[in-house]
Structures are given as structure tokens and as C-alpha cells.
């Protein structure tokens, strides 16, 4: 299939945007290929009410990527990230 595109004059006065988030693009210009992926997971079971217990670590937690607090730059006081 052949697809012919003719771009005529493009003048825009003003663009006001509140936010560009989660793998989005605001582009002024031409492009060839764009692939945008966004996964956002907040299922009901993400809300845990009860005694604050450690979340279960994954298999092989020693080699897993956690927050790097070995250098002493972690903030134990902070309650949220």
C-alpha cells in the first residue's frame, strides 16, 4: 500500500498543557517511529490496612534490587517515597 502525505502550512499560536506524563510525547516537528508503553498498577489489593508488617521479599532478596541504603544515604525518617 502506498500512502502519500502532503504537509501544508502549519502555524500554531499557543499551546497550554497541564502535564505530560507516563510515556507521553509533546513534539513540534516530524518523526518516523514512535512506540510508547506505560504500565500503571494500582489494584485494590495495593491498599493494605492492618499492622504495618514488612512486605514479603522476593526469592533471592539478597541479590535483588532494593533501595540502596548501604552507603548511608537513605533517610529512615521518611515515611513515603
Amino acid at each position: 500500500m502506498n500512502f502519500h502525505v502532503t504537509n501544508h502550512t502549519l502555524y500554531v499560536g499557543k499551546i497550554e498543557t497541564l502535564g505530560v506524563a507516563s510515556s507521553s510525547i509533546l513534539q513540534i516537528g516530524d518523526t518516523q517511529c514512535i512506540s510508547l508503553y506505560s504500565m500503571f498498577d494500582t489494584p485494590p489489593e495495593s491498599v493494605i490496612v492492618g499492622p504495618v508488617a514488612p512486605l514479603s521479599p522476593p526469592e533471592g532478596a539478597e541479590s535483588a534490587e532494593g533501595e540502596d541504603d548501604r552507603n548511608g544515604d537513605a533517610e529512615p525518617e521518611s515515611s513515603d517515597v
Binding site: K14, I15, E16, T17, L18, G19, V20, A21, S22, S23, S24, I25, L26, Q27, I28, G29, D30, T31, Q32, C33, I34, S35, L36, Y37, S38, M39, F40
Partner: peptide, 23 residues
Amino acid sequence: EVIAVSSSSLILIGNGMNTRCES
């Protein structure tokens, strides 16, 4: 005018070739 850009988003004034973003 943009208030916030976040989570592997992109503002590009110009031409692009291959763009891949993942969050």
C-alpha cells in the same frame, strides 16, 4: 506552556527518528 513533564515523557522541539518510551 507546560506545567509538568514526568515519567519518561518527552518534549521535543524538532525532528525525531525512532522514539521509544516505557514507564
